[in-house]
Design a protein around this nucleic acid. Structure first.
Lengths: 147, 147
DNA sequence: CACAAAGTGGGGAAAAGTGGGGAAAATGAC
DNA sequence: GTCATTTTCCCCACTTTTCCCCACTTTGTG
């Protein structure tokens, strides 16, 4: 399980240190891909496989499925760590995610997301009011289900 | 079951001792998250899973679900105790909860809440009149339901 | 009162994160 | 094919943060 948000710097060579807590849970063979809302996503190997499975089962037309496969696999790379625990973000990935000198690394349960500074401040900076609202919703749903 | 309220100090390193009575009931794998009304919440492992289930079963759009997951998991951390039974509150968590040098640790049935000094004095100090009013309400609802 | 358990505080070793130099490899030009 | 340029990657050095350990105080208990 990946939890927490970390702000790390991206140096001029495009290197980004992955938090040690995350790295421990990332066996070799993990994949970094382009994700929704303009973020990058790191999938542990088995999660990546699971993702492909659900796409196969999603009853797309063959043409759509081919297009999806090209998009997903073509834009992804294997994660390779150097001795300091950093990965190199390709120029393509950096420009896709709008990342320059700072990146936010976010644990989202079974995968990791990487955001640029501006977008994460907008998306990730939830106030106490928002958390309150979420808990209200969850509590209501649970009550509804238990009846 | 977590019961009682404790006032503990938070040192300059952000460390907070969790009451021994609570610690005994917290297996490793417990999670500390941002909670409603600006408090922090510690979920024992299985409670955390239950919370996640409630959210998964909710009928949100994929985009809303992604946002919810980012907020919940990105704002949470695993609870790690040192040899003295303390956890380190991250800078983000401290600022979210407005905690500086004092924290109130409150047992709330199946989870633990952590409050800053000022907020807890305001909301935690209920008078006899308030307890009376709440018990009245509960009793009335129960009678209504049983008829 | 003596003892044990719980909470508090700080020093210092170890780990994590950051930045840059330079060799090896890849790319491209002539 | 050869040379020059760029890119990649390995290594080293430095700073900051984390966390482990020890010690003291306070609280509770027999």
């Amino acid at each position: 399980m990946f939890l927490g948000t970390y702000r790390h710097s991206v140096d001029t060579k495009g290197r980004l240190a992955i938090p040690a807590r995350f790295r421990e849970q990332l066996p070799s063979g993990s994949v970094i891909a382009k994700g929704a809302e303009g973020c990058l996503q790191i999938y542990p190997r088995e999660e990546w496989g699971r993702e492909q499975d659900s796409q196969r089962l999603s009853s797309l037309s063959p043409a759509e499925e081919r297009r999806l496969a090209r998009m997903m696999f073509g834009a992804a790379r294997e994660c390779e760590f150097d001795a300091q625990g950093r990965i190199v973000l390709s120029a393509d990935h950096r420009s896709y995610a709008g990342i320059t000198s700072v990146a936010w690394i976010v644990g989202v349960n079974n995968l990791i997301e990487i955001w640029n500074d501006e977008d994460w401040r907008r998306i990730g900076d939830a106030t106490a009011e928002e958390y309150t609202r979420i808990q209200d919703q969850v509590a209501e749903r649970r009550r509804a289900r238990e009846h």
